[in-house]
Design a binder for these strands. Structure first.
Length: 503
RNA sequence: GCUCCCGUAGUGUAGCGGCCAAUCAUGAAGCCCUCUCGAGGCUUCGACUCGGGUUCAAAUCCCGACGGGAGCACCA
């Protein structure tokens, strides 16, 4: 073809590399974007939180802006002291760093002032109805008498009583639109009495703002320009905007994205808690759980989570992602960074007649950049049962990195004969250990949920021998056992245990 | 039930009127490479939910149906 000589570059098919940057943000100016991640300190962070935190953080970086960590601790019954720090640890591990940090509970006095303003404007009232009555009223779109009777001056007195004395009770409602199609607008609750002791403010306050109020006010006042939340809040947007406009506060550019869910891995506490209570999982850091702690133990690295999240992008499409997507990203990340060792699952003894005593240095990584470990061999080896069973008398196998062995006897144990050092092309190469091995258990996590129910078959074990050199590496490190997979090494009650990440 | 959101290969994603006989990843199958069944390279498989309309032109805009999800808390 003429083209081949005339313009060879046209024949080169260009491979478009997709960049995993987030789409541009509407109304965003360099240096002026402020985002926020607002967890409630009521549990450990999971992959869903990671999505939100990473998007918030990445957008702030993309626009040289600012990223705020705000603890939305406005319900003292849920907030627990331990989780403030636990969540910060999780974020640090993820590699998400914030510029400012505060608690919504720091700002209650301000919230009270704004509440007072709403009352004075007659945009809110105090409701004394029972929750059943309120629910029915909202369902039918009918206002209760409180809406007219406990408003203005009347409401201000009640409000002050409520602040002074929890016994007074009542709830503070927005004067919204009881007839609205959007049920969120039917006079939502903005403040209510909760007497539980708050982890930070103790019993100083007993009137607490709801999410609708606190979220909107905090976003606005803290200067957030682009707050993101998940789709299930979409109907509450109207409430958000209404509150801010009544209060004459700046209205941020609010956006929603879909929740991230992974097939076979429940994210909600509602589903995880029973598993813990029934002892079906070890805790929130169980290796089968998509909590950041679980993922970490399983050998999923933060860089992979980040790339995975960015690959998912920012959309409202509900999706149930397959965990293989996470594994794939993780594997590619680990491949160049992790040391190689030999682990022999289900070991079978192989005795080699006339075995030359050798001292070999095996590279810790195929690219040769990570040094090597030294192994002294004798005539006794162990190889995986799965491979041993395939051997027939006369077959030649290659002890990977060592030498060839010709099988002379099969059975419960194998006998072979030394068959030369040179690598014979096409020989079956298998990993091995000498009799100077260490027994190792590898935990293999599976999907904890199957068809929406607990999967009792979700945890497997692999017993085997590992070469002694493994003792040189620190707990917590991830290695690749050749021909087996990537495994994170962990200390459990003085024992070394492996946790299987993926192939 | 009412309201809102969403609908591109098995899964996830790009595209958002002509460059689309639709991108990339994942997955599966095969080949090459490699002293790993990993990584890398190559090939193949596989999708615009359906029906109307607007337009010279629709995956892209409009309407409807169907399917999925969410909300209807004194929880975030």
């Amino acid at each position: 073809m003429e083209l081949t000589s005339l313009a060879p570059e046209l024949l080169q098919r260009e491979k478009k590399e997709r960049d995993f940057s987030l789409p541009p943000l509407p109304f965003a100016e360099k240096g002026k974007v402020i985002t926020r991640f607002p967890p409630e300190p009521n549990g450990y962070l999971h992959i869903g939180h990671a999505k939100a935190a990473i998007i918030d953080y990445e957008y702030a970086r993309m626009y040289d802006g600012k990223f705020i960590l705000r603890f939305d601790d406005t319900n003292p019954e849920n907030a627990h002291l331990d989780f403030y720090d636990a969540q910060k640890e999780d974020l640090h591990w993820l590699g998400v760093e914030w510029d400012t940090e505060y608690h919504t509970s720091d700002h209650l006095e301000m919230h009270y002032k704004l509440a007072e303003q709403l009352i004075k404007q007659r945009d809110a009232y105090l409701c004394k109805c029972t929750s059943e009555m309120i629910r029915a009223g909202r369902f039918n779109g009918k206002a209760c008498d409180c809406r007219e009777d406990r408003t203005g001056e009347e409401a201000l007195d009640l409000w002050n009583d409520m602040l002074a004395n929890p016994e007074v009770g009542g709830i503070f409602r927005l004067h919204g639109e009881m007839e609205s199609d959007n049920t969120a607008m039917r006079d939502p609750t903005l403040f209510r009495v909760i007497e539980a002791k708050h982890p930070l403010t103790g019993d100083k306050y007993h009137v607490w703002p709801t999410y609708d109020f606190a979220g909107a006010v905090e976003d606005s006042i803290s200067g957030v320009t682009h707050p993101f939340r998940t789709k299930e809040y979409e109907l509450r947007d109207a409430v958000y905007f209404r509150i801010l406009s009544l209060l004459n506060l700046r209205i941020p550019h609010l956006m929603e994205f879909s929740r991230l869910s992974i097939e076979g891995m429940p994210v909600s506490k509602r589903k995880i808690k029973p598993l813990i209570e029934q002892g079906l999982v070890t805790g929130f850091d169980d290796v089968r759980l998509p909590t950041l702690r679980g993922l970490k133990r399983r050998g999923i690295v933060p860089e992979a989570i980040k790339q995975f999240v960015l690959q998912q992008g920012f959309s409202k499409v509900e999706s149930v992602v397959n965990f293989s997507l996470v594994e794939s990203v993780n594997r590619k990340y680990l491949d160049s960074k992790v040391k190689r060792y030999y682990f022999v699952p289900d070991p079978v003894q192989l005795s080699v007649e006339d075995a030359p005593k050798k001292t070999v240095k095996l590279s810790l990584h195929p690219d040769g950049t990570m040094g090597e470990r030294t192994i002294h061999t004798s005539s006794t080896f162990f190889i995986p049962k799965e491979d041993a069973q395939k051997m027939k008398i006369g077959d030649i196998l290659r002890l990977k990195g060592l030498y060839n062995v010709k099988i002379v006897k099969t059975g419960d144990t194998l006998t072979g004969a030394f068959a030369g050092d040179e690598l014979i092309p096409e020989t079956f190469k298998i990993q091995w250990t000498t009799n100077d091995y260490i027994p190792l258990k590898i935990i293999v996590p599976g999907f904890i949920f199957k068809d929406e129910a607990y999967n009792p078959d979700s945890l497997h074990e692999l017993q085997g021998y590992v070469e002694k050199a493994i003792l040189g590496i620190p707990f917590g490190e991830i290695v690749q056992f050749e021909r087996v997979g990537f495994v994170r090494l962990e200390k459990q009650k003085n024992d070394l245990v492996g946790i299987f990440a993926h192939k």
